[in-house]
Design a protein around this nucleic acid. Structure first.
Lengths: 243, 243
DNA sequence: AGAATAGTGTCTATTAGACATTATCGT
DNA sequence: ACGATAATGTCTAATAGACACTATTCT
C-alpha cells in the first residue's frame, strides 16, 4: 500500500461517498414571564409533524455557521431580536426513529434570557410562535422527540439551580434579590428561606449593588446587577430540598 | 400552496438535497491501571492526522447503529472484548475547522471500565493501540480536537467524582473500600480521609459486603460488590477540596 | 508480642434552614 | 404612628474533615 501525502489525500477526498445523517440544532429557550417558567415554541407549518409545536431549531448551515453554537444562535435570532444571556449544550440525540425521514442527529441547547416585550417572527416553516409555560408545553405532544429534549433541559436547569447561580441569567439589567429568589423558587418549585438565599448570593459575588432602589410602595428593595463572570459560580453546598 | 399528506411528503423526500456534515462518535475510555488513570488511544495509520494518537471513535453507521450510543459501543467492541460499566455523553463538537476534510460533528462519550489483562486490536485505520496515562495523553498532540475532548471528559469525571459514586464503575467484581478510595484519590489527585470516605459510601448504599476478605498479609480487608443502581447516586455534599 | 494494615469514635468547623427580630419606606 | 415589605441576627441540625484510637491479621 503506497502512502500518499495528506495534501493529496484531501484533494482526492469525496465527502459524498458515505451516507450521513442529517444534523440539526434545537434549543429550549427559557424565560420567566408572569411568575412562570416559559419556553419558546414554534407551530410547524410543514411536514413532518405539520401542525405540531416544536422547539426552536433547524439544520446546520455549513456555509454560514462556524460551529454548532452559531447554528443555535442564528436560529434564535431568526425568531427574536433578543440576545440570550446564557447558552449551554444539554445533549445530542441521534437515531433512525426520531425523524420519519431517517437517521438524524440533533444537538440540544438550553438558553436563558430575561423576558421583555419582544416581537416574535414565526418565519419559514412555522405558522405560529409563542411563549408557553413549561407545564403546558410538557402536556402537548411536541414534534420529533422534543418532549424528551424539553424534559432533559428542564432537569438540567433544575439540577444546576440547586448549586449554581445560573438563574441570574434570567434577570433583567437591574433586579432585586427577592426577584432572583422568586426565579429560583419558580424553577425549583419550592420555597426558599430568604436569609439562606441572600447568604449564598452574597458569598457568590456574582451580583453587586447598583445603589438604586426599586419602589414597592413599602420599603424599597435594593437593586443589583450581574457581575460578568467568565465561569458559572458553584455553591459549596446545594440548596437542600424539602424532606 | 397546496398541502400534501405526510406520507406523500416522505415518499418525495430526497435526503441528498442538502449538504450534511459528517458525524462521528469519539470515546474517552478510562481505566485505573498500576495506580494511575489511563485512557485508551489509537495511533492513526491513515490521513488525516496520520501517525497521531487519537480517541476511540468513528463514523455513525446508519445501517447498523440504532443510535449514537450504539456507535460508541460498537467502536469500543472493535478494540477490546470488554464491556464498559458506565458510558456518559460529554458533549458534541461541530465546526468547519476540526477536521481538514471540512465541517464535521462529533459526539464525545466517556466510558469507565475495570482494568484487566485484555487483548487490544488496533483494527482498520490504526497501526497501534495502547493504554496511556492521562498525563502522557495530555502531553501528546492528539489528532483532531481530541486533546480538548480528553480534557472535557476528565473535567467531567473529576467534577462528578466529588459528588457521586461514579468511580465504583472503575472497580472489578469485588473490591475493598480502600481500593475504591484510592480510585477517588487518583481521579481527584488529593488524599481523602478514610473515615469520611467510608461514611459517604455506606450512606450511598451502592455497595454491599460480599462476606469475603482480601488477604493483604496483615489484617484482611472486607470485600464489597456494586449494587446495581438504575441511577447514579448523588451525595448530599461534595468532597471538599483541600484549601 | 510486635508490626502493619483495616476500620472506628469522637471532636471541631462549616454552613443550610428556621424563624424571630429589626429596618425602612409610604401614608 | 402604622402597616407592609425588605433585610438581618442568631439558634439548631447536619455532615465533612481531622486524627487519635481500636481491631485483626501474620510472623
Amino acid at each position: 500500500m503506497s502512502k500518499i501525502t495528506e495534501k493529496q489525500f484531501l484533494e482526492d477526498y469525496n465527502p459524498a461517498v458515505f451516507d450521513r445523517p442529517s444534523t440539526a440544532v434545537d434549543s429550549v429557550i427559557f424565560t420567566i414571564k408572569e411568575g412562570g417558567l416559559h419556553v419558546l415554541l414554534l407551530k410547524r407549518s410543514d411536514h413532518p409533524f405539520m401542525g405540531k409545536w416544536a422547539l426552536v431549531g433547524g439544520y446546520i448551515d455549513m456555509k454560514n455557521d462556524v460551529d454548532l453554537e452559531a447554528t443555535a444562535i442564528r436560529k434564535l435570532n431568526e425568531k427574536t431580536a433578543l440576545e440570550c444571556a446564557y447558552l449551554e449544550q444539554v445533549c445530542t440525540v441521534g437515531d433512525s426513529k426520531r425523524d420519519p425521514r431517517g437517521w438524524t442527529v440533533s444537538t440540544c441547547y438550553f438558553a436563558l434570557l430575561a423576558w421583555q416585550e419582544m416581537s416574535l417572527s414565526a418565519g419559514r416553516g412555522a405558522e405560529d410562535i409563542a411563549w408557553v409555560t413549561v407545564e403546558e408545553a410538557m402536556k402537548k405532544s411536541l414534534a420529533f422527540d422534543h418532549n424528551r429534549l424539553l424534559n432533559l433541559s428542564l432537569e438540567r436547569l433544575r439540577a444546576k439551580s440547586l448549586y449554581t447561580t445560573l438563574p441570574v441569567n434570567l434577570m433583567d439589567e437591574e433586579f432585586t434579590l427577592l426577584e432572583l429568589q422568586a426565579a429560583y423558587e419558580i424553577i425549583l418549585n419550592q420555597p426558599i428561606q430568604a436569609k439562606s438565599f441572600r447568604r449564598r448570593i452574597e458569598n457568590s459575588k456574582v451580583t453587586e449593588e447598583t445603589g438604586n432602589f426599586k419602589p414597592t410602595g413599602k420599603r424599597p428593595a435594593m437593586l443589583y446587577r450581574k457581575i460578568d463572570q467568565p465561569e458559572t459560580y458553584f455553591f459549596t453546598r446545594t440548596i437542600e430540598s424539602l424532606g
